[in-house]
Design a protein around this nucleic acid. Structure first.
Ligand SMILES: [Zn+2]
Ligand SMILES: [Zn+2]
Ligand SMILES: [Zn+2]
Ligand SMILES: [Zn+2]
Lengths: 144, 144
DNA sequence: CGGTGTTATGTAATAATATGACATCAAGCA
DNA sequence: TGCTTGATGTCATATTATTACATAACACCG
């Protein structure tokens, strides 16, 4: 024990709790997809998840897209818009917006809460969802 | 004369000048695609542009994707990541980042410069491109 | 002028991403 | 039990985007 970061099992247990809380059902399939995302630790493509789910190729696209829809709705995962990929949420957000820093060299993603909603939102505009993604090179890769 | 906003022709002329400045060539094809974007005034799908370009269906996908690549590289257009769509840039950005407010009800997009780069960027992360998109309801649609 | 490299475009094929529609299944409950 | 509901299975298809290679246009140099 004594991991530097929370284990996948722990995160899955938290996801269970969160879903129970919200009256959502984290079925085995959905949980398995979340597990795959957690194990990857980064953005994963839908069809790669599909392949991981059923290496024999027997799983069909709707299977994975439905699971991903559920997970993103539940706040357990994010879609990385500019990559057409999906990743486990590392934080859990209340009203805060997720902000992603994506290294184009090594593929790692750093996620954090955006510090504040834009104060310069057009008069009367009601934001329901925001996409904040920054692409570039992480500290490691900048030095190389 | 006396438009409330700059005419398409004027914008195309400015695009010409900007490209000349940067040593880029705004060919007839590229200019035509920009014109289509300007005329639309909002986000347009690649295949819709393709259809508008050659209503007989004779134009192939690479034609439009190449033109869009050029326009986005040149700073004359933006890709709206979460819509898989493209729109003419209304501002021209120097170092500033474009920030889009997209009404999910009427489809209008308000574009402005993001006021500042995030000051909470992870230590050492070098941002090369940022995606800032907000989805919701514009003032008009909020009141309806 | 003719050759030659470079950039842009045409064209065919295909890859990658995502959804619609309908059948089936399983759990909860009247 | 039969019924309803939510979840999953399955087939088909739509949408978005790229690869690869051929051709064209054009500038530059001999
Ligand atoms: Zn998150
Ligand atoms: Zn990196
Ligand atoms: Zn712009
Ligand atoms: Zn609106």
């Amino acid at each position: 024990m004594g991991h530097a970061h929370t284990s996948t099992e722990t995160k899955l247990a938290k996801a269970d709790a969160l879903c129970a809380d919200k009256g959502l059902s984290l079925t085995p399939l959905r949980k398995r997809v979340l597990e795959l995302l957690l194990e990857s630790g980064g953005p994963v493509k839908a069809y790669d998840l599909l392949a991981a789910l059923k290496p024999d190729g027997s799983a069909q696209p709707p299977t994975i897209y439905r699971a991903l829809d559920f997970l993103t709705q539940a706040g357990l995962a994010h879609r990385v818009e500019a990559l057409n990929a999906y990743m486990a949420c590392v934080h859990g957000h209340g009203d805060e917006i997720a902000e992603l820093f994506i290294c184009e060299n090594c593929g790692t993603v750093r996620e954090q809460h955006a510090p504040a909603l834009p104060d310069h939102t057009p008069e009367g505009f009601q934001i329901s969802r925001s996409v904040l993604e920054h692409y570039g090179r992480c500290a490691q890769c900048s030095n190389a």
